[in-house]
Nucleic acid binder design. Structure first.
Lengths: 239, 239
DNA sequence: GGATTGACAACTGTTGACAGTTTACATCCC
DNA sequence: GGGATGTAAACTGTCAACAGTTGTCAATCC
């Protein structure tokens, strides 16, 4: 992919090199092309992308605020490495945020938004019956994205998406597949139902529960494996 | 304040100009020296602080991610202006986060942390009896900061503090004084009590309630005043 | 008079260069 | 052989200059 593959031109689309570079480095980090812990050389990246170091440095500053890299003065930039405790913290925080988002949407929902959610549910149910995991997974993402977008709280959305990105630092790709589609489907239905009915507190709890189940399933697969001995919290508790 | 007023030297304290500049501009924004909506000139700021434009540009990139400024390509940087709806959204989001933080702390609290919280409460109660608003306000801030720090979820803390900063964009200074110290005090006691007892859900609700009361008091003072006619949401609902 | 055009000033985006720091490696001493 | 020391390469932090864009304002045309 070249840096020039961009959306059709429009006045408001004018992108600076910094933004393009930031997007590209972000993509490389999220896809794992730049693995966690990797030290990044400004010069190398600049040469690689055919720009000077300025835009690269600026992009790094943005990625630092986003939590994707760490910058140490006079030493350089390294892709952030996330330990077990931090991973759990991120899951919990994201869960709480998603609960808030569901709660908010339940208060502000419009009929049109409800229809969209219902459509997604129908699509997922069909994919489930056809055992089409690919499609189910795709619509699942759309369903979540729709809720986050519809909630209308832009800041909450930005924070939520930022944390979701950050979680790619330890969640290997492919692992995001759904394991238990039936359970997942039922949780989706609970969420949508509560939102449509306007039951804010119920929606919140359903949203949190959904992500918590996802978290537990994920953590179970790598406990004492990837992060083995990485939990400072466990160590402290054992003393 | 000069740019050189820094902590005692330590290797890990080595600060780059970018960081210093970012901190200084942030300070100017938060104190209102650079008011919301103000257009910032890189060159002017650079000259003013005695550095070149590079560090200033990088600092701007960081401030953008933090939500304090908006950057438009080829036009410049402007201090963000926050409308009524956005202000409400920020309050809600911060409230939800604080609830999560209280909930988390209730699960992880140590005896030492509980003692610290109790100390703060004692201090506030004393200030309340002495009708010393200045002291009450100071310890109130310390109480909140302690909870956020103790919760141990670093990412949650970072997000929370970021949003608190952002809220300075519409909260004029001086307005943060406590109006109803008695009510505020009781809410603090509920929060601390729940945390110390380890009742996570109770702590969460107490935390949210505390901030919601603060929000309502604040919004009441400026409804149909500062933000008059600024609510797109109200407009939409009226149609 | 009002709209359009064109030139100028101010500013942003980007680059390349220089100075200072870190890191790696070879050398020296014990 | 193992550790301390000194040197050189590589890299980051900062700067100054150039190129391109935006906005202003006066002159021009309808």
């Amino acid at each position: 992919m070249s840096l020039n593959d961009q959306k059709p031109f429009h006045a408001s689309n004018v992108q600076t090199l910094t933004v393009l570079v930031q997007r590209e480095i972000e993509r490389r980090i999220l896809t794992g092309a730049l693995p966690a812990g990797k030290r990044l050389s400004e010069s190398a990246l600049a040469v690689d992308m055919g720009v000077s170091r300025g835009p690269v440095r600026e992009a790094m500053r943005g990625l630092q605020q986003a939590g994707l890299v760490e910058i140490v003065a006079n030493k350089g930039v390294i892709v952030r490495k996330i330990g077990y405790d931090e991973a759990v913290d991120l899951y919990d925080l994201r869960g709480s945020l998603f609960g808030f988002i569901c709660e908010t949407l339940a208060r502000r929902r419009t009929d049109e938004q409800c229809e969209t959610l219902k459509d997604k549910l129908t699509g997922m149910r069909a994919a489930l019956r056809a055992d089409d995991k690919e499609t189910y997974f795709r619509i699942n993402l759309e369903f979540h994205a729709a809720i986050v977008e519809f909630c209308g709280n832009q800041r909450a959305r930005a924070v939520y998406e930022g944390i979701a990105k950050e979680m790619h630092l330890f969640r290997r790709r492919g692992l995001s597949r759904i394991e238990n589609m039936e359970a997942s489907m039922e949780e989706h239905e609970s969420i949508a139902e509560a939102i449509i009915a306007g039951r804010a507190e119920t929606a919140r709890r359903a949203g949190i529960k959904h992500l918590r189940n996802g978290r537990d399933r994920f953590l179970a697969t790598l406990d004492h494996e990837d992060f083995a001995g990485n939990s400072e919290r466990e160590k402290a508790a054992a003393e």
